[in-house]
Nucleic acid binder design. Structure first.
Lengths: 105, 105
DNA sequence: ATCTTTTATCGTATATTTACGATGAACGAT
DNA sequence: ATCGTTCATCGTAAATATACGATAAAAGAT
């Protein structure tokens, strides 16, 4: 019958799920793409190109920053965001590891 | 001032966010790992190794199935789940594309 | 000093997610 | 036909996510 359930989740599993959560909204996917493609990475530029209010975009940026996928540098009254290449690489590697298996059926 | 906001999200962005959402819980990460590692993929085996009730595990399996990352085959009164290798490969490819860029700062 | 610009945070409403017990449906065994 | 097993679904409570307007904070410009 198995009445155990002692096992918890590993830190790696929790972290990877957290990274995935930060990618789980189209706006945040788009923001990452825009940060890669645009020269300027001011918040205003992002707001202009997203169908969302400034407060909402700021909230999405906060979520991406929370898991370390992007960094923000203050530049006068503006803030310049950029992707954290190292964090992206780490996430990519972890996801690759999860995905590079073969199904059991 | 830019008062446009015409742009919506692409289907690709929406789909990728959806895949990420399905990975955004440690239990679902663990389930994918278990489906890769175990010989048996009965729901009961998963429930035994997860700190969650059967109904909750079933709900997580439904979410993974919703985005196509796993398939379930009915086998008598049991159900055998397995990863959808093609879907995983597609997701991996899309994430790689998103991640293989260089930051702007 | 005051004003404007830029961004973050607060407050809040609504929607979604997560979790569980209870119940239902499908099937094999008796 | 009834019973036990296996899994999905229902109902529901609590937590989290999403969105926006309003407001605050920080800095440059006048």
């Amino acid at each position: 019958m198995a009445i155990s359930k002692k096992e918890e989740f590993t830190q790696e599993e929790i972290w990877l799920a957290d990274v995935a959560k930060s990618l789980s909204h189209p706006a945040r996917i788009k923001i990452l793409k825009m940060l890669n493609e645009m020269n300027s990475c001011m918040v205003g530029s992002l707001v202009d190109k997203l169908p969302l209010a400034q407060a909402t975009v700021s909230q999405h940026l906060k979520e991406l920053k929370r898991v370390g996928l992007i960094n923000g540098e203050i530049d006068g009254p503006k803030v310049c965001y950029c992707v954290n290449t190292k964090a992206l690489a780490k996430a990519k590697s972890a996801l690759d590891k999860l995905f590079n298996k073969i199904g059991c059926c």
